[in-house]
Design a protein around this nucleic acid. Sequence first.
DNA 1: GTTCTCACA
DNA 2: TGTGAGAA
Length: 123
Amino acid sequence: MKEKDLRRSLSVLPIGTVMKLTSLTARQIRYYEEQGLVFPERNDGNRRMYSLNDIDVILEIKDYLDEGLNISKIQDIYKKRKETNEQNGTSKELSDQEARKILSDELLNIGGLNSKDAENNSF
DNA sequence: GTTCTCACA
DNA sequence: TGTGAGAA
């Protein structure tokens, strides 16, 4: 389903929508971008346009924050996740399950949570 | 009305 | 991280 993946990567959401969807302030959302956690496009004017993909990432960031991680650690996690993605030469795209596996693994490493806890979403 | 940047507490 | 100022 690449079509779906493309669609979810289309940045069409203004920060206001993201705020509602993530329950975060514009300040935080912009800050996370500054920290290289999300990469919104800058289409019209100078406005950030977020994709559904970004929403997902931000939601995950929020989750990590809830686990008591700081931005620096989250940056590290995402960096590692990206590396793992590229490292998988067999398939260009990693399945959602794989990505979540990696994330959960990271959570286990620092939070010491149960795998079952790490797998479910907060939403 | 909404978002942007910069700066200060 | 919140908030306010000034501009687009």
